[in-house]
Simulated assay, not measured.
Amino acid sequence: MELEIRSLIKNYGKKQALKGLSVTLTEGVYGFLGPNGAGKSTFMNILTGNLKATSGQIFYNGEDIGKLGREFRGVLGYMPQQQALYPNFTAAGFLSYMAALRDMKKERAKKRIPEVLSQVGLSEVAGDKIRSFSGGMKQRLLIAQAVLDEPKILVLDEPTAGLDPKQRIAIRNLISEMAAGKIVLIATHVVTDVESVANRILLIREGELLADSSREELTASLSGMVWEVTIPQEALEEISGQYLVGNVSREGSTLFVRVISENKPEKWAPAPVRPGLEDVYLYYFKE
C-alpha cells in the first residue's frame, strides 16, 4: 500500500499555501507537524477531496486519486478539525447516518456501529444525545465515524484540539490501537500528539516540507545544541535576546533555562542536555 504526493501546489490568490509538497507514505503513522497556517489542513482537504490542488497529483497504489474518485474515497476515513456533529442525534444514530452517506450495506453497518462504539468506549452512551457529550467524547465519536467503514487510509486533523491532558492521552492511545494495517496521517501543531505514536514526523512550514524523519533522527540532529543554564532573573532578557529559549523554571530567585544554540553559551556555564522533539519544533519553527 502506497500513497504518493507529487509536487502538490495550492494557491489562494497570491498566497501559496502549498509549495510543491512531495512525499511517499506506506503503512504506518505519520505526524504532520507545524504551526497554524503551515499548510497541514490544506493538504488534508486536498487529499480528502474537499479542495482541488492548483497543480500536482496524489497517487494511491500508482493510480491518480482524481481518476479513482469514489473508489479512493471508499478506502479513506477522515476526522475533521471542527466537531461537525448534530447535537440532537444519538451516537448510534449519527454513525447510522454516516454509514448511509458512505453507502454501507445496512447489515454491515448494523454490525460495525456497535463494534466501533465499543472501540472508542462509547457503548454505554450509544443512545444518548450528542448534546450531552463532553469534548473528549465528541472527539472519540468523530474517530468512530472515521474508522466505521474500515478505511485503509485514516486522516486525522488536530484530533486532540481543545482537550485536557487526560483526554489527549486517551485519544492518542486510541489512535495507536486503530493504526494497524493502515496509513494514518495526523496533522497537528501539538508536539505530544505525535511524539509517542508517529513512526515518521514531517515538519511543514509555510507550505514546504522541512524534514521527514523518525523522532530519533530528528532529535539526534540537535545533539550538542541543547543546554541548560542557571541564571538570575535579571539575566533572562539578555539570554533571550541572544539565544532560542525553551523551558524556563524557577527556584526562588534562580532560573533554570533551556537554550537551543549551535554555539555553546559559554557565559552562563551551560550543561548539555538531551534534545527532545519540542526542541526540534522550536529550532525549525523558531517558536
Rank of each mutant, 00 (worst) to 15 (best):
N36P: 12
A198C: 03
R131Y: 07
L21F: 10
Q145A: 00
L210F: 03
V229G: 09
K110N: 09
R215Y: 06
E278T: 07
T192R: 05
S22G: 05
N61M: 07
K264D: 05
F59D: 12
P270D: 04
L142M: 04
A271C: 01
K138P: 12
I204M: 11
V116D: 09
A100S: 03
R172N: 10
G62L: 14
A99G: 08
R274Y: 09
A179K: 07
G69R: 08
S134Q: 09
I58T: 09
V245L: 08
P232C: 00
R215C: 03
G66L: 05
Q82P: 00
I201N: 00
L244C: 11
R258I: 05
G13P: 07
F285L: 12
Y243S: 02
L202C: 14
K19R: 14
Q81K: 02
L185S: 01
V191D: 06
I153D: 10
V194D: 01
D157P: 05
Y60M: 07
T192G: 08
K15H: 15
L21S: 00
L244V: 10
F59S: 05
S213A: 15
L95I: 01
Y281Q: 03
S213V: 00
R70A: 12
E208T: 13
A38D: 10
G62R: 14
E251T: 05
E216L: 10
L122V: 07
A100W: 05
T26D: 14
V190C: 03
V259I: 03
N247T: 08
G28C: 02
E63T: 13
E217H: 03
R258L: 02
A179L: 03
